Amino acid sequence: MTTGTKKIAGTSTVIGLIPVFVLLAIGDYVYRTGTAVLCGVRESQARNTLSRYYTPGPGQGPFRGPGWNRWVGQDLSHWWITDVSVEEVHIKDPHRPVQIEAWWVPTAYPTRSASIIVAHGVNSSRRDFSALLTAAMLVRQGFNILLIDLRDQGGTTCQDSRHSAGQDESDDIITAARWLQDTKGIPTSKTGVHGISGGAIAAIISAAKSPTLAAFSLDSPIFDFNTAAVHEVEFQGYPGFLWRAAYWAARLRGVDLAAVSPADGVTAAGQRPIQIFHGTADSRVRYQNALDLIAHARQAGVQATLHTFDAADHIEGMLVETDRYYQMLETFFRGALGD
């Protein structure tokens, strides 16, 4: 090959790679913006505590569109908890530079050890109404509660202001369970997890990482990560096909958003029970995810129950049928953790 021919070949290779570089650059932008979360507490959540909490205002709810407006100003005072002690605790991850901020609610401790870790959704905190409402239900049922802020959100350590689709957040759940065991003497066999939206992803992934956590309650989880990621990219306002570019851009940054999948968690659950809450009109995490998760659980011989909320949008079931939601939580955790 002559020198001129080599130059032409080299130039052609560079030109051929330009579209790849451009696509990766776009993918990196989608990754950085699509996974961005607020390191801190949102103004709409700042005043919320277990004793007094509110739904967010128009355009600030868990799903978009005018459908959320019906819940703005919803009276949740019936579910406020004012007669139990709440202690703010800080839990250090023994393996990573992360300190988890949480509320420990020893409803029946030490008489009763059954405890539940409540994990909020993406770009939220333990002060969100959805985490507080479900925690309040569980307190009324006599369970001890650990309400945690997942990393990069609320009061927990800010590492990079991005969520990792449950990969790192699942470690926070395991760290919280270890704290219950080491500090309170509560074994993981008496510890369950209730995850909401993004917290549900972290919860089911934690099943693959911890063989002893006892039970997994999931509100609006994803199942097939690739399909759900396409929908999420579209939800964020980008063309769905850019998901693959975003995934590989993240890999170049050393982040594997699909290292452990929800399917891995379901399979690893084994004899540990799973329950799912999901609305048929979920505009963010499509209802098909719940059906696919249940089908996979049956194939794997895992005990899993689906509670469907007709015409409910993303995590709306707890508002549409609050009493039913309460009953399903109690039945599930009472059966899994005992008294």
Rank of each mutant, 00 (worst) to 15 (best):
E87F: 07
F223P: 00
I117W: 01
T5P: 07
R324L: 04
H90W: 09
A312T: 00
T49V: 08
S261R: 09
S261D: 06
G4Y: 12
R298C: 08
C158A: 02
T156V: 04
Y53P: 04
L150M: 14
V22W: 11
A25W: 14
T305N: 10
S261M: 10
S85Y: 08
V193C: 04
V72F: 10
G166C: 06
T322S: 13
H314M: 02
T157I: 00
E316C: 07
S124E: 02
H278W: 03
F241A: 06
R126L: 15
S130M: 01
G142H: 05
S206N: 07
A311I: 06
D128W: 07
I145G: 04
K184I: 06
P273G: 13
A177H: 02
D128S: 14
W179Q: 03
L291R: 01
T183D: 14
L147H: 12
E101S: 14
A36W: 11
L252I: 11
L38K: 13
P62Q: 08
R70E: 04
T212S: 15
V118K: 05
Q288Y: 05
V72P: 08
A25I: 12
T35R: 05
I174N: 03
H90Q: 10
P56D: 13
T157S: 00
H163Y: 12
I91V: 07
V285Q: 01
E232Y: 12
W71G: 03
G67C: 11
S124Y: 01
G67A: 14
T107M: 07
L76A: 13
P106F: 05
I201H: 02
V86C: 09
